[in-house]
Amino acid sequence: MFTGTKVRLRPLEPDDAPSLWRWGADPEVVRWMNAGYPESLAQLTRRHLERDTNSYATTLLGIETLGDDKLVGAIRLRDAQPELGMAQLDLWIGEKDQWGRGLASDAMRVMCRYGFEEMRLHRIELWVVADNVAARRVYEKVGFVQEGVARDGFRRGGKWHDMVMMGLLEGELR
C-alpha cells in the first residue's frame, strides 16, 4: 500500500466490484469518461476477477481515504514501456461526496511518485476532455502541463469535445 496525506492506494479486492459498478452507472461520475457499454454487476464482477494481475505494464489501485478506509476511487498507470520510460495515467473518484476534498491531487502525487521512484519512469502522460475544468485543475496542481490537443476527440451527448494531452516529467511533481 502507498500512503499520501489524505489517501492510501491499495490493490482492488473482489468485494470492491459493487462500488465500481455503482460509480460506472452514475451519469455524473462518468460524464467525461469513455465508460463503455452498460454491464450488470455480475458482468463487472466477473471481468474484475479475471483481469490481469498488476505488473509493470498496468498497475490498477483503489483509492481509500485515510482514517475510515473508505474506497472512493481508482487510479491506474497503464501502457508502461520500460524502453521509453513512460506510462499513461487514469484517475477516477467515484464517490461524489468526496469531490473537491483534495483526494484526487493526493492520489495523483502518490501514484506519480511510485511511477518515477519505483518504476523508474521518466514521463507520465494523460488525456482529459478540455471541458473537464475540475480535472484539469487537479492535474495542473500536481505539475502536469498541456502538451497538445486532439480536436473533437471525445463525443458525449451528441456533441464533440476536444481532448487535451498533458504530461509530467520526472522532477516536475509538485
Rank of each mutant, 00 (worst) to 15 (best):
V110S: 06
D15P: 00
T65C: 14
T5P: 01
L12W: 07
L41R: 13
F154I: 04
L9A: 03
A74G: 10
Y114I: 03
E64I: 00
V110Q: 07
E170T: 09
M108H: 01
W99I: 10
E125I: 01
Y56M: 11
L168H: 03
V142L: 11
F144Q: 10
A130P: 00
R22A: 15
I75R: 10
I63H: 08
R46T: 13
V7P: 04
G148F: 13
K96M: 13
V129Y: 02
D97T: 15
V129S: 08
R22V: 04
F116W: 05
L91S: 05
L41A: 06
A130F: 01
S105R: 14
A150D: 04
D162F: 09
R31N: 00
G153L: 00
Y139K: 10
D131A: 15
Y37F: 03
I63A: 09
R113Q: 15
D68N: 15
V145W: 00
M166A: 12
E118L: 04
A35F: 04
R156M: 12
G94H: 08
G36W: 04
V149E: 09
R8S: 14
V110C: 03
E125W: 14
T5V: 08
G94V: 05
M119Q: 14
A57V: 14
Q81F: 08
V110G: 05
A57M: 05
D15H: 14
F116D: 09
T3N: 10
V7K: 09
I124N: 13
I75N: 05
L103P: 05
K96I: 12
L173H: 00
R151L: 12
G102V: 07
G67C: 11
E125R: 10
L44S: 04
R10W: 11
G148L: 13
P14E: 03
G157V: 02
L41D: 10
L126T: 13
D16Y: 02
V72Y: 06
W23F: 11
W92G: 12
R8W: 03
I124D: 07
L61I: 08
A104W: 02
T5I: 01
A107E: 09
D106H: 02
D68W: 08
L91D: 09
W160S: 13
P18K: 09
G157P: 02
E28G: 06
